[in-house]
């Protein structure tokens, strides 16, 4: 393990995936404002399916805001205003008449701080499916088991499903939150710095999990941990704050390219730790 090097490039066999053909998620000339504040400036980005895309960049560069555009979580902020096109499977998700609830069912999200609900592990996983109308106990049992297995948490909690979701460790809580998302069978999983509140071992577990999940899900992860981006992602987008304090896309490409042969001087400076 080359832990010393700042850059540990992921050389998985699918490292050559290009965001070509049908993009799962697409942004075209997107601008996001919070009131007068220009948070995200003129970003265009294609994200292909069954891959992990990392969004990296210094604090306050609009990474999380960018991520939240994909499931319209920015809608919760009254002053947020968006320009440009954001597409999911070719559908403009900001056009009138879009069912945001249905969109978020298909584009799930995991947050920075593990946020299990104050209820049992079982109920946490069932929360989404129950709200979506599944009442059958057997069906719910199956969903819980399947989701927890997928989230690599089953073995650790199968004997205490009725215990509070808050009673397990931080890393387990985060995997529980991932299981909660998986339980509603999304197609895309957005992760907003999912490991920043976790210790290194828990972090590695989540990263392994991401690799496994990337076979069947499109994953977009925001991280300020560059090694993490290098380890897990296929594609990397590097964001920076411009002179006008708005976040803009500096470089986007295959992770191996970005980390070994960045085209932009700013990217190189950032990944080699010269700033940020």
């Amino acid at each position: 393990m080359n832990q010393v090097s700042m850059v540990t490039v992921n050389n998985k066999n699918n490292a050559n995936v290009q965001p070509e053909g049908e993009a799962r998620l697409r942004m075209e000339n997107v601008n996001l404002y919070y009131g007068e504040f220009h948070a995200v400036k003129d970003i265009s980005l294609d994200i292909s399916s069954s891959s992990i895309t990392a969004i990296i960049g210094p604090s306050g560069c609009g990474k999380s805001s960018l991520l939240r555009l994909f499931n319209r979580m920015n809608d919760l902020i009254p002053s947020a205003r968006i320009e440009g096109l954001v597409e999911f499977d070719g559908v403009d998700i900001y056009q009138p008449g879009i069912d945001v609830v249905e969109l978020r069912k298909r584009v799930g999200m995991v947050f920075q701080k593990p946020n299990p609900f104050p209820m049992s592990i079982y109920d946490n996983v069932c929360f989404g499916p129950r709200r979506h109308g599944i009442r059958n106990k057997r069906a719910l049992d199956d969903i819980v088991e399947k989701s927890l297995i997928q989230a690599a948490l089953w073995d650790e909690v199968k004997d205490k499903l009725d215990q509070s979701g808050l009673s397990i460790s931080g890393g387990q809580q985060q995997r529980l939150c991932i299981a909660r998302v998986l339980a509603v069978e999304p197609e895309v999983i957005l992760m907003d710095e999912p490991c920043s509140a976790l210790d290194p071992i828990a972090t590695l577990k989540i990263e392994d999990l991401m690799r496994t999940l990337s076979a069947s899900y499109t994953i977009v992860i925001v991280t300020h941990n560059m090694q993490q981006a290098a380890r897990v992602s296929d594609m990397t987008a590097f964001l920076m704050v411009g002179d006008d304090r708005a976040g803009m896309l500096v470089e986007y490409g295959q992770t191996s390219e970005i980390f070994t042969n960045p085209k932009n001087k700013k990217t190189e400076d950032y990944i080699t730790g010269r700033f940020g």
């Binding site: 499931n71 979580m73 919760l76 609830v101 249905e102 969109l103 978020r104 069912k105 298909r106 799930g108 999200m109 995991v110 947050f111 701080k113 946020n115 299990p116 609900f117 104050p118 929360f127 989404g128 709200r131 979506h132 939150c177 909660r180 998302v181 339980a183 509603v184 999304p186």
Partner: peptide, 18 residues
């Protein structure tokens, strides 16, 4: 009620009223 709970729920396609 912490906003993290609301976000966690909304983010898995649960409606605001639910």
């Amino acid at each position: 009620v912490p906003k993290e709970y609301r976000e966690g729920s909304l983010a898995i396609g649960v409606s605001k009223w639910q």
